[in-house]
C-alpha cells in the first residue's frame, strides 16, 4: 500500500507538464516492444501512473527498477494520444535515481569513461593502426581538462562517485 506523494508528483509535472494529461489509455503499453517481450514487467503506462501518484518508493528507491528496461525507441511518445512525453519523464526519473546512486553498472561505466577521457570508447592501439590502414585521419578529441571542468560544474563527477560506492 502506498501513500500519494504530491511533492514528487508536482515536481515531475513542473519539469514536464505533459504528465498531467495522461488518462491511462494504455496505448503506450500496448504499443511498447519491451512491454510485449517482458510480458508487462516493463510497463510504461504503469510507470507514468506511479509518477502521477508520486510514488517515491516505487520509482526512485526501488533497486532494479524496471524503468531501465526502456529501450528509448520513442514509440510510446509518438503514439500517445495526449502527447505525454514519456521518455523525457522517464529520463527525469532515471536522473533522480542516478542522484540517489542506484543506476545499473553499465551506465556508471559509460559515465566513468566520459569522466576519464571525454569519450565513451577510448582509442586502442589496434584501432589506430586499422584507421591508418583504411586511410582515415587521426582524431583529435576534446581536451580532457575542459571536459572535467564541465562535469564538475554539472555535478556529474560527484554522482558517478556516489554511484560507484
Amino acid at each position: 500500500m502506498s501513500v500519494i506523494n504530491f511533492k514528487l508528483r508536482n515536481q515531475v509535472i513542473k519539469h514536464n507538464a505533459s504528465l498531467s494529461y495522461c488518462y491511462q489509455c494504455s496505448t503506450c503499453s500496448g504499443g511498447c516492444p519491451v512491454a510485449l517481450l517482458t510480458q508487462g514487467k516493463y510497463n510504461p503506462r504503469k510507470i507514468i501512473e506511479m509518477a502521477i501518484l508520486g510514488l517515491q518508493n516505487k520509482l526512485i528507491k526501488e533497486p532494479n527498477s524496471s524503468i531501465w528496461l526502456c529501450s528509448t525507441c520513442q514509440k510510446c511518445v509518438e503514439l500517445c494520444p495526449q502527447k505525454v512525453e514519456l521518455t523525457e519523464i522517464f529520463t527525469l526519473l532515471k536522473n533522480k535515481i542516478f542522484e540517489d546512486g542506484k543506476v545499473p553498472e553499465a551506465f556508471l561505466l559509460q559515465g566513468q569513461a566520459i569522466l576519464d577521457s571525454g569519450i565513451a570508447i577510448p582509442y586502442s592501439k589496434a584501432i589506430i593502426s586499422r584507421r591508418e590502414k583504411l586511410g582515415l585521419p587521426e582524431i583529435k578529441t576534446a581536451p580532457i581538462k575542459e571536459i572535467k571542468l564541465l562535469l564538475k560544474e554539472t555535478n556529474f563527477e560527484n554522482k558517478i562517485l556516489k554511484g560507484s560506492k
Partner: peptide
C-alpha cells in the same frame, strides 16, 4: 567529445 549518448548519459544526467 562524446555527443553524449542519448541512451546512456542522457538517461542518467540530462544536464550533463
Amino acid at each position: 567529445s562524446c555527443c553524449p549518448d542519448p541512451t546512456g548519459i542522457e538517461q542518467i544526467d540530462h544536464k550533463t
